[in-house]
Computed example of a mutant assay.
Amino acid sequence: MEFVQQLINGISLGSIYALIALGYTMVYGIIKLINFAHGDVFMVGAFVGFYAITGLGMSFFPALLLAMAVCSVFGVLIERIAYKPLRNATRIAALITAIGVSLFIEYGTIYVRGAQPEAYPGDVLPSTSFHIFGATISSQSLFILGTSVVLMVLLQFIVHKTKIGKAMRAVSYDAEAARLMGINVDNTISATFAIGSALAGAAGVIFGLYYIKIEPLMGIIPGLKAFVAAVLGGIGIIPGAMVGGLLLGVIESLVSAVGYSLWRDGVAFVVLILILIFRPSGLFGKNVREKV
């Protein structure tokens, strides 16, 4: 069954979008900033994973953990250097800075290592095929999906069951009140960037295994699509980012399946336009009155 196969492919792709979208939505939920450099953190994660596997001879899980750790530190550095000085600036100043940081990372990477693409080795994960309902599904797709789901469940545990998670929710709700209650707001914001960037780094390694080819500008389109996924689910809402990412991946795969593969990148932005027209707050969002 072609449909089942495309559905599995769509969910695997969507889980990658969901991991990146979580970083967007967490940062927006706390400091109301769209961190457009997030797609480039994803790219850095893909390269760290690649060099860990090919240069250091690591297997998949150690490479994934290393990429997450490096991206986590990288995300905190971006926040401390580029965004923290603009904490009380206008939203547009922070947004322009985010775009500047994004371009700096992309072309800094090209300057350091060149623009040539790299290819992930195909033997990192054992590749076998399963036949379910007449569809041929690779073990790699299921492995990618399983890893993504575990990371998402882990994030939900951190947000709802740990001290830093409670601090993040408090700062998201009211930063000033959280500060008065003794919560270190700056450290909480840094922790949010660290967790979101670690998930983007994991998505980069998973993306490299799934699509093989990686290059310095690879973060642009997945980054924008993950942003669409975050808006689709309701930006600032963690379950919304997960559902939005999975939905977008499935929609893309089904568009390719019916013969419109040239439209697979465009469909994300059609979805964005439709959601902004008909449900601006996203699937999980609530319309909130804002005092002017």
Rank of each mutant, 00 (worst) to 15 (best):
104 F>Y: 12
215 E>T: 11
149 V>G: 02
273 I>K: 06
45 G>S: 10
171 V>A: 07
102 S>W: 00
121 P>E: 11
57 G>Q: 10
90 T>S: 15
64 L>S: 01
253 S>K: 06
186 D>I: 08
131 H>T: 15
215 E>Q: 13
152 M>K: 03
46 A>Y: 10
228 V>K: 04
89 A>K: 12
60 F>M: 07
268 A>E: 05
213 K>V: 15
125 L>A: 04
42 F>G: 02
199 L>E: 01
170 A>N: 06
159 V>E: 01
190 S>D: 13
146 G>M: 09
87 R>V: 10
32 K>C: 05
125 L>W: 03
236 G>I: 00
76 V>K: 10
221 I>V: 14
244 G>I: 03
93 A>V: 15
158 I>V: 15
132 I>P: 01
204 G>R: 04
63 A>E: 04
242 M>Y: 11
15 S>M: 09
283 L>M: 15
35 N>R: 08
252 E>K: 01
104 F>M: 15
268 A>Y: 06
91 R>D: 14
7 L>I: 06
61 F>G: 02
261 S>E: 10
66 L>F: 04
98 A>I: 08
81 I>E: 11
228 V>C: 07
212 I>H: 13
34 I>H: 07
81 I>D: 11
99 I>N: 05
48 V>W: 09
214 I>G: 05
272 L>G: 06
286 K>A: 14
3 F>P: 00
257 A>N: 06
38 H>S: 05
116 Q>K: 12
90 T>Y: 14
31 I>R: 11
211 Y>H: 12
